[in-house]
C-alpha cells in the first residue's frame, strides 16, 4: 500500500515493476472490494480495503499483506478475474493499493473496460505461462518491464508476448484511454444521432 497516490495520466507506453501473484479463478469484484466499502462519494480511501475479507481470513498471509509484495505494481491473476458487480471501486481500490497493470488468463468484460477507463492495462497470457509465473518460487521477486508498443514483457531471463485488445493498446499509446474528450470531439455527430433515433420522436411523455 503506497503512502501517496498519483493517478495515471496521458500516454501509457511502459510499465516497470515487481509482480504480485494472486491465485484463483472467478475472483469477483465483491471480493476485490466488499460492498460495505462502496458507501462513499469518492474513491480516495479504497486502497486500504482491497481484498479486505480475503485478507482477514488469511490472517496476514494474503499476497496483498506480505511484506515482500508491498512495492508490487503488476498483478498476475488467473481466469475470469473481476467477474460480478460492475463496481469501478474494484480497479480503483487495486490502483490505489499500487497496481498499475494486470496480467491474467482472462478478465470479465465490465472489469476490463473499467480498468481501461482508469488507465490500468490488462493483458492476457495462456494459462500455462501464467501458472509458470505463479508457481516459480525462484521468481519471488519477479520484476517485469512491459512495453505496450511491442506488447512485450521482459525480465532478466524471460520474454513474454502479451495479448491486449488492439483498441485498448492504441488508446494507451495515444493517451486517449480517458475517453471523454475523444467522445466530445464528435458533438455534432452526437446531436445528429439523437435526431435520427425513432424513439426520441414518439416519446412525448418521456421524462
Amino acid at each position: 500500500m503506497k503512502s501517496f497516490f498519483t493517478p495515471p495520466i496521458g500516454k501509457i507506453i511502459q510499465i516497470k515493476g515487481q509482480c504480485i501473484s494472486l491465485i484463483g479463478n472467478d475472483i469477483d469484484t465483491d471480493r476485490i472490494i466488499p460492498a460495505r466499502f462502496l458507501k462513499c462519494v469518492n474513491f480516495d480511501s479504497l486502497g486500504e480495503s482491497v481484498f479486505e475479507d480475503d485478507r482477514a481470513t488469511l490472517k496476514g498471509q494474503h499476497p496483498f499483506d506480505l511484506e515482500e509484495n508491498k512495492n508490487a505494481t503488476i498483478l498476475i491473476v488467473n481466469s475470469n478475474f473481476g467477474c460480478g458487480s460492475s463496481r469501478e471501486h474494484a480497479p480503483q481500490a487495486l490502483m490505489r493499493w499500487g497496481i498499475r497493470a494486470i496480467i491474467g488468463e482472462s478478465f470479465a468484460d465490465i472489469f476490463y473496460s473499467n480498468c481501461i477507463a482508469i488507465g490500468i492495462p490488462c493483458f492476457t497470457l495462456p494459462k500455462k505461462s501464467i501458472q509458470e509465473i505463479q508457481n516459480n518460487k525462484d521468481n519471488k521477486f519477479l520484476f517485469l518491464e512491459i512495453d505496450l508498443k511491442k506488447s512485450l514483457a521482459k525480465a532478466k531471463d524471460l520474454s513474454l508476448n502479451l495479448e491486449i485488445k488492439e483498441s485498448s493498446r492504441k488508446m494507451f499509446l495515444s493517451g486517449e484511454w480517458d475517453a471523454t474528450s475523444t467522445l466530445l470531439d464528435n458533438k455534432n455527430l452526437i446531436e445528429n444521432k439523437l435526431n435520427q433515433l425513432p424513439y426520441i420522436k414518439f416519446n412525448t411523455n418521456f421524462l
Binding site: R87, I110, S113, N114, L183, I190
Partner: peptide
C-alpha cells in the same frame, strides 16, 4: 442494455455516448 463503470457513467453524462467494442 449493459452495465458500465463509474468512468463510463461520467462519459454518458457528459456526452450521452460511450466507447465500446
Amino acid at each position: 442494455a449493459f452495465g458500465i463503470g463509474t468512468s463510463q457513467v461520467r462519459d454518458v453524462l457528459a456526452t450521452q455516448t460511450i466507447a465500446m467494442n
